[in-house]
Simulated assay, not measured.
Amino acid sequence: MAENRALKSGFAAEAHNKIKSKYDPQLAFQLLQWIKDLTNEDIDTDGDSKNFHATLCDGKILCKLINILQPGTIPEKKINDSKLAFKKMENINHFLEGAQKLGVPSEEIFQTVDLWEQQNLTAVCICLQSLARKAHKYGHKSLGPKEAEPNIRTFSEEQLKAGEGVIGLQYGTNKGATASGIVFGNTRHM
């Protein structure tokens, strides 16, 4: 995992420290509490980054979460109990695919290494937060603000034609005024 890597230095260290500074332990606590409530797993809900990583890094709880929101999204035979790193990372990848199926936009999906190697736990929180907002669509308690619902409007051909005859004020109007006769300032001397 990440402990076998060389320490970052220079710009890379600055960038990584900036990413780590955006991690919100309070949000992580809320997300872990939400996961605990849905999955009925006995997990530590401390929002500390080390606990957050340790709780979610094998991906099994995340896969269980997806299957609770939408049963059968990840087949049980695909979820790995193995101690091998690549099998755990595969679980995380199954979660990410399932999250996209449930409507999490691709901009809010994290990379597997963001969680596995603790590269960007903030991105993991963003993904889980997005998934938590969509939980009400699947009959479960959601977390965060309610998402907007589409308000589709349909207009008849008659209504659309009526709008073509109106000249909007954004096109401008001068109500018959002209610029003739305006003398402003002194004349130009050559």
Rank of each mutant, 00 (worst) to 15 (best):
M1I: 12
E3R: 14
R5Y: 02
A6N: 08
S9W: 03
G10S: 07
F11Q: 09
A12N: 03
K18T: 13
I19V: 15
I19S: 10
K20F: 01
S21N: 14
P25W: 03
L27E: 11
Q30P: 09
L31C: 07
L32F: 13
L32R: 14
I35N: 15
I35S: 13
K36Q: 15
K36W: 07
L38K: 11
L38D: 12
N40I: 08
N40R: 12
N40Q: 13
I43Y: 08
T45Q: 06
D46F: 06
S49F: 00
S49H: 06
C57A: 05
D58N: 08
G59K: 04
K60Y: 02
I61N: 10
I61H: 04
C63S: 14
K64P: 08
L65A: 11
L65P: 15
I66C: 04
I68Q: 02
Q70A: 14
Q70S: 13
I74M: 10
P75F: 01
E76H: 11
E76T: 06
K78C: 10
N80P: 00
S82A: 10
L84I: 05
A85K: 06
N91I: 02
F95Y: 15
L96F: 13
G98S: 03
A99D: 06
Q100F: 01
Q111W: 09
E117V: 01
E117L: 08
I126V: 15
L128P: 11
Q129W: 13
Q129E: 09
S130N: 09
A132R: 07
R133V: 03
K134I: 10
H136R: 14
H136Q: 08
K137I: 13
Y138E: 11
K141H: 05
K141D: 03
S142W: 01
K146W: 09
K146V: 14
E147L: 04
A148R: 01
A148E: 13
A148W: 00
F155E: 03
S156M: 00
E158F: 00
L160G: 01
G168L: 07
G168W: 06
Q170L: 04
G172I: 03
N174T: 14
K175Q: 11
G176K: 03
T178V: 09
A179L: 12
A179K: 10
S180R: 08
S180H: 14
G181R: 04
G181Y: 04
I182A: 09
N186C: 04
N186A: 10
N186L: 13
T187Q: 06
R188V: 15
H189T: 12
M190F: 02
